[in-house]
Design a binder for these strands. Sequence first.
DNA 1: GGTTGACTTCGAGCACGCTCTAAATCCTAG
DNA 2: CTAGGATTTAGAGCGTGCTCGAAGTCAACC
Lengths: 145, 145
Amino acid sequence: MLEVNPHDPVPPEGLGIAEAARRTGVSVHTLRYYERAGLVITDVDRTTGGRRRYRQSDLDWIKVCTRLRDTGMSIRDIRRYADLVAGGRGNEHERLALLAAHRTELAERMDELARSLAMIDRKIGIYRERMATGDADRLWAPETR
Amino acid sequence: MLEVNPHDPVPPEGLGIAEAARRTGVSVHTLRYYERAGLVITDVDRTTGGRRRYRQSDLDWIKVCTRLRDTGMSIRDIRRYADLVAGGRGNEHERLALLAAHRTELAERMDELARSLAMIDRKIGIYRERMATGDADRLWAPETR
DNA sequence: GGTTGACTTCGAGCACGCTCTAAATCCTAG
DNA sequence: CTAGGATTTAGAGCGTGCTCGAAGTCAACC
């Protein structure tokens, strides 16, 4: 068997999907799913028998995708971005717009999360207070349930 | 027809599901779904004909649920919480533990979001720089795509 | 009594992002 | 050459949280 350690450079003949999965941090299923979904614009090579052979450049691009995914970007939007990148030079403004829109969304989510956190903290505070003062079974206002 | 304005107090005979939906901010579908899911522990009254009649106390509890939902708590966890509340006095520690666990999750999500935001900002920064310096089609390192 | 519109239940459908299965094929070690 | 593990495909399945549809019932007004 072709021995390839996780940190060895990718051999000239490329990597099998299992090793590619290991190196990108997703499952082989997900790797194939991303390809079907049109995210993998690097056109992964195949052996004559049809097996995928991943090159470093493939892994690099897939990592871009997984990083975007990690930021909560939807598959659909990553797809859009990928299409732009595949479209080549000249659409940087569009790509930037897409990223900026995503950034805005993240910032909004952040605000909302902060509000949620405050709300939960308030609720927790009420509970703590209640329990400390032994009011646990006297206060039944909905606010505090 | 029974005229009931959105801010009128709930009449003694209760509200129909449509008005309850309006007042709780969810759809009638969602209202029934929450009930099926076991979130609505206030046991909404029914007319002899089987129609739901919402009292203020029902609305108050449902609003607790929607607020928890707004904080991103899962239906399953709201269910657990509801069961505890329905269980009555004496399990305040458990409720608090549940809320605290959720709070921890929110805080983690917050951190992750902050990291995502930073990552996206870095990427956006790279794009801005590239485009400003006219490097748009020279830099193709995967980091910057 | 009749028309209308609100409401009922149950179950299906949907969007998302995987995750898994089955049956076939490939490829490498021995 | 063969055994057996890795990989292939298309498509099904899953968990979440709704959302909708169908077919039937109820109730308010005329």
